[in-house]
Design a protein around this nucleic acid. Structure first.
Length: 442
RNA sequence: GUGGUAGUAGCUCAGUUGGUUAGAGCACUGGUUUGUGGUACCAGGGGUCGCCGGUUCAAAUCCGGUCUACCACCCCA
């Protein structure tokens, strides 16, 4: 006996149909925003991830050495591949580049709820536009996807933060860029660990001021509107360079929030500087989608994304500003399932063909073929068997109509169409079969 | 990676203080006179009781290990 590998899923038809439901909604929504589909390799050089994605991800790579001695990794995320692809043609792509991909990603970590070794992600990215209009468009798309799946403002929230603002703020407090990066890493984990622990981790950069600093950070993380943020920050920096930068950044926020409002997604988005995101390549606005529970967020992030304006350049290509998000199927499916939003799709035929014996069966198969060529989903019993049985199959198949080619009908050059719901039957010449079915189904 | 709980048919589970060929419901297959289904009735297939080892005359049952799943940490999209 064999089992599938830990953390890898098998998709029987019922699960596959649920997965495809997600994919269909993802694809349809992305296309409605004018995004174009692309795809990238599942296996990449290990190098692509080692230095570019941040050390965090590397420990959990599904990697090995191939037969040619190359160090390779199953892709843990799509962004580095995308950055390479877009970078390679950076000078010839019409901007903005709006691309999406639905693909499988892998990580080697202990499987648990919401976190498997293989999962599917919708990745959407806008490249070549540095202004907040791109961020707004991308967040609007993310919200549209969530809404299309039935999730509303009561169910989930997009927590919107800003690494640039944080960096300016930390600079205004006198931290250099390297220290600020380290401090951001601590802030990112602030929610998931105790205050004492957080203070201890801040001490290497802030020493005795760590505790006071944390109080200020916590105050910032609680802010939910731009006005409050502005007044909170106004005391910092003054006319210093950092203060001016902070002011400029707040202007960007104004544009972004106004755009989100006009795009009709503001009710799903909230300002929340408690989000920082772990990956090292993020630069500006960042966001994560969380399930809403009793006023607060809970569980694992459903989706996340943000700006990565320097990644393409770091990979050795022309500079190309970019913003993107990833939405995984595992946490999302769990959430939809909990809320009863996963339709139990079962693929049903439109027509079940019932065949009489002998010549009638041949006529029935010809009929089935004609129906299929007309675009109907058609099934019939694969072996010659009694009518009672065939009707049982027809009923079990969920078909809307049975089309009967019995000896009597075939002798008349006809077929009998039975509405499986009402039981109404009608004998029609074979030549009119498609026409009549079209009327009944239309 | 660390700890806790669990593992009997495709699914949900029974299985008496260890005692013959391990059960039920659902699902599946076939049938209830070969021209009418979704209900009903009858029958059937399917399990080396997660795996390996130990204790015992005897293990689904007790013990150890291992694998897997779930939960909590660690870590993190």
């Amino acid at each position: 006996m064999f089992e599938s590998l830990p953390g890898f899923r098998e998709f029987y038809p019922s699960e596959c149909s649920r997965r495809n439901h997600l994919f269909q909604v993802w694809r349809r929504t992305a296309v409605s925003f004018g995004f174009q589909e692309y795809d990238a390799p599942l296996l990449e050089p290990l190098e692509l991830y080692v230095e570019k994605s941040g050390a965090e991800i590397v420990d959990q790579l599904f990697n090995f050495r191939d037969k040619g001695g190359r160090e390779v990794a199953m892709r843990p995320e799509l962004t580095p591949s995308l950055a390479r692809m877009a970078g390679a043609r950076a000078n010839s792509l019409k901007r903005p580049v709006k691309w999406y991909c639905i693909g499988e990603n892998f990580r080697y970590e202990k499987p648990q709820k919401g976190r498997l070794r293989s999962h599917y992600q919708l990745n959407c990215d806008i490249l070549g536009e540095a202004g907040p209009g791109a961020d707004a468009e991308l967040i609007a798309l993310l919200v549209a996807v969530l809404r299309a799946l039935g999730l509303g403002a009561d169910d989930v929230v997009v927590r919107l933060s800003d690494r640039t603002l944080w960096m300016h703020y930390l600079a205004a407090m006198g931290l250099d860029a390297a220290s600020a990066g380290g401090v951001l890493g601590v802030i990112d984990k602030m929610e998931r660990q105790g205050r004492d622990e957080t203070i201890r981790k801040l001490e290497p950069w802030l020493g005795a001021e760590a505790s006071d600093f944390l109080i200020r950070v916590e105050a910032l993380a609680r802010i939910r509107d731009l006005g409050a943020l502005r007044s909170q920050l106004s005391g910092h920096g003054g006319n210093s360079e950092a203060g001016v930068l902070l002011e400029g950044r707040l202007a960007e926020w104004e544009v972004l929030l106004a755009s989100l409002e006009a795009l009709g997604v503001a009710d799903m988005v909230r300002l929340d500087l408690g989000v920082v995101r772990g990956l090292a390549y993020y630069t500006g606005f960042v966001f994560e989608v969380f399930e809403r529970g009793e006023g607060e967020t809970r569980g694992r992030a459903v989706a996340g994304g943000g700006r990565y304006d320097h990644l393409v350049e770091k990979l050795g290509y022309p500079a190309l500003p970019a913003v993107g998000f990833g939405l995984g199927d595992v946490v999302l499916s769990d959430l939809l399932d909990e809320k009863g939003l996963l339709p139990a799709y079962v693929s049903m035929p439109d027509v079940y063909v019932v065949a009489g014996p002998g010549d009638a069966r041949a006529a029935a198969l010809r009929g089935a073929t004609a129906l299929r060529e007309a675009g109907y989903r058609v099934e019939y019993a694969l072996r010659d068997t009694g009518f009672g049985r065939q009707f049982r199959f027809a009923g079990g198949s969920g078909a809307r109509f049975a089309v009967i080619f019995g000896e009597e009908e075939v002798r008349l050059g006809a077929a009998k169409i039975r509405d499986m719901q009402s039981g109404a039957e009608e004998v029609v010449p074979v030549g009119r079969m498609l026409e009549v079915l079209g009327e009944r189904l239309g």
